[in-house]
Design a protein around this nucleic acid. Structure first.
Lengths: 222, 222
DNA sequence: CACAAAACTTACTGACTGGTAAGTAATGGA
DNA sequence: TCCATTACTTACCAGTCAGTAAGTTTTGTG
């Protein structure tokens, strides 16, 4: 038993402490929101104490901002793992939608955090250096995929990548962010496995149909 | 000048007082959230004082719940004004999507309020008597419309009304609820008129294409 | 008009909570 | 091994904010 949990072996591990605090803060901020979350609650979930949090993150908002920055890392990395270039355009699009759908479904805390940040006008992530540009790479790979599909004749031309991303994100985000009011209003748990499977198929189908050149002209008819 | 604004004429008008408080509370809760909003802030926007708020609504959460109940009245009434039966199924569907789209776009405070309520697990609207059933009428008129379209051969069969409603709501809600993080992440103001027009068209088109029987079988191909 | 109930106001309070002062323990470099 | 710096703790405070006690004005009713 040379190295154990390293909890007692290394009582002062700054990376561990910060990660510990961030994990607790992530959970509490996602559950209670920025104002509803109390620093004492976060500290209680931590191996350390409140002043240590202030020592590392300066303020409650500083901690919240750090949580956001880390949380956004997840989806940013998502798209790079998909290897879309090795697939046909339609298969790649399907994988992209499914991956986005699954990520949202599996990370409801992240979805909640983004909702919270929107309530606050996105003022915290706005200050993060080059935050916007980093996220915009998703749009570029979508654009490449669209171009490839148009060239292959399986996607219609003229679709804005950023608008398609909006459409996909809508279908992935809303069902997670609004599942509680949906449960009350329609008695339907959008995250239940049965619903999820149907909605996943719907999302893929809606996107593929929207892009399909063979459906052209449909919207004109009465 | 027999009856003026009735503000000075009738210093104690209970309906007026309640409406006054509800309007102020709606604005503050939508802007700051349940915890971030302070009863003192709400009272300051009112012709009356804080204890009067407690007199009428009992507690902060009571006030918040009353605001939610009133706010949900808007969309509930929406669908009844559309007169979908007088239109062809496709035209009716288009009008339904456009009306929902416009309602969300024109009522961002309502969208924020629903987001807030979701952060809190929809626990406040859950207690409202028969709240869920009242909202479910939207699903029924969607079902009727789908049946009519299938009979006319312009919609494919087998589409669940509640799932279609989810799809429409997603496209209408997300762009309003998440516009701030989108602005930061993609430099795009989803509510700007230029974007809005394109997205409105997209939403309609996506729904109509999803329902169109002529696109059948597309999702199977690679 | 009388008077009880309803609709308010002024003036508080007490718990909570973000933040800190002041001091202690570990760490790493000379 | 000394010591400056970093990492952390205990004990505390001051402002905030939901909620109220106690009293005043209005209103509807007999």
């Amino acid at each position: 038993m040379s190295d154990r949990t390293a909890a007692k072996a290394r009582p002062r591990d700054i990376a561990r402490t910060r990660a510990d605090i961030l994990a607790a803060a992530f959970a509490v901020f996602a559950e209670k929101g920025l104002v509803g979350a109390h620093v004492d609650d976060i500290a209680a979930l931590t191996r350390t104490t409140k002043p240590t949090i202030y020592y590392h993150f300066g303020s409650k908002e500083g901690l919240y901002t750090a949580v956001l920055e880390q949380a956004y890392g997840g989806i940013r990395d998502l798209e790079s793992t998909l290897d879309l270039d090795s697939l046909t355009p339609r298969a790649a699009m399907r994988r992209l939608v499914e991956a986005s759908f699954d990520y949202h479904a599996q990370n409801p805390e992240w979805v909640r955090l983004v909702s919270v940040e929107n309530i606050h006008g996105a003022r915290h992530i706005a200050g993060l250096p080059a935050f916007g540009r980093r996220n915009a790479t998703v749009i570029e790979s979508l654009r490449a995929l669209l171009v490839r599909g148009v060239a292959a004749g399986v996607f219609r031309p003229g679709v804005e990548p950023v608008h398609l991303h909006w459409m996909i994100s809508s279908l992935c985000f809303y069902r997670v962010s609004n599942r509680h009011t949906w449960k009350v209003n329609f008695g339907l748990d959008l995250l239940a496995v049965r619903q999820a499977a149907a909605q996943r198929r719907m999302a893929v189908e809606a996107v593929l149909r929207y892009l399909d050149p063979r459906c052209e002209g449909i919207e004109e008819t009465t």
